[in-house]
Design a protein around this nucleic acid. Structure first.
Lengths: 169, 169
DNA sequence: CAGGACATGTAAACCGTTACATGATTAA
DNA sequence: TTAATCATGTAACGGTTTACATGTCCTG
């Protein structure tokens, strides 16, 4: 199966968040925090917006030398469906989807948090298992100290994330 | 400038860690812990090993139907130089380089930790600034709750990483 | 009036994945 | 003996970046 494309959904989500955006504004968005978990260059954005309009996900209108895009009804549906698709072990996707939730009372918020908690718990278990099998003696730690460090770091990282998730649930 | 290729250095580091590896063994490595912060498929690995041999970074010898690769003197130098290049805001690279440090007493260890600390501190400052400028009123939090969540999460994440780094220094 | 930001577009190059291929060895 | 694993290779495809291009508007 071909690799799942995310860019169109990112654009859908970003435009939906602001109501309406131009290609240029989207590329500016990626220079702020959105850029921490997703990025696209203008040479990707403009053609993609064109395709999405052709597919009926977006409608556009010109104003002040810019072309602004807004979601169509179909676009809203497609975004909604994508938002409800199960997460995988990819923190960027989790952040992205969270970013697209505007209202604290959106029931999707809790679904996302629970799903992410499940995934991270599984990962933490896996990492702790690795730590015990790979570093069962002091000597193995000494001989692969860097590896030991990043493994323990990864465990602390996941624990921290899990605690945060539990706190928000 | 063209985008910096990392794969050859990853291969250099992995082979150096184990002394000598075949292409197949490398692709197996990526299925274990290494796979948590880097991955490459065999269709990338084999041609890359060939190129690196052509470039004089590696030498090979056949044994048991497999081709094993070892660093040349030049390969060692190139790896060393790359390890000493400054880090950027890319946690995978930090983990990768740590992974390639075998000995706790390697002076590079402290250099890496200090550099990463500096980078993360800068990032934390930036994120805290964003929090204050973007969410200066309660209403803005209410209206972009998901965004607020990921921003505060990012801040906690960086703080946790910074504390870990300080603890190791 | 020059340099930077705004605004959009396309072509080429690059990197990585999936798929297609092949053959040897080993365990059920 | 047949399926799985070992072991390597290459072709096609797709997504992203860099580079090339063009024109406007605003500010110092």
């Amino acid at each position: 199966m071909p690799k799942k494309r995310i860019l169109p959904y990112v654009l859908l989500g970003l435009i939906n968040n602001k109501g309406s955006l131009s290609g240029y504004q989207i590329s500016q968005e990626f220079k702020n925090e959105v850029g921490d978990f997703w990025h696209a260059s203008h040479s990707q954005i403009y053609p993609e917006l064109g395709r999405m309009k052709d597919d009926g996900w977006l409608k556009d209108h010109d104003e002040d030398k810019s072309t602004f895009y807004t979601l169509t009804t179909e676009g809203h549906q497609i975004l909604r469906t994508w938002m409800q698709e199960p997460l995988d072990d990819n923190e960027e996707l989790f952040s992205l989807k969270l970013y697209f939730i505007k209202d604290e009372s959106d029931p999707l918020l809790n679904t996302l948090l629970k799903e992410e908690l499940q995934i991270k718990q599984t990962k933490l278990d896996y990492l702790q298992g690795r730590l015990q099998t790979v570093f069962d003696t002091e000597n193995k730690i000494k001989d692969n100290y860097g590896h030991y460090l990043i493994l323990t770091r990864a465990i602390e990282r996941e624990s921290n994330h899990i605690n945060w998730l539990k706190n928000k649930l």
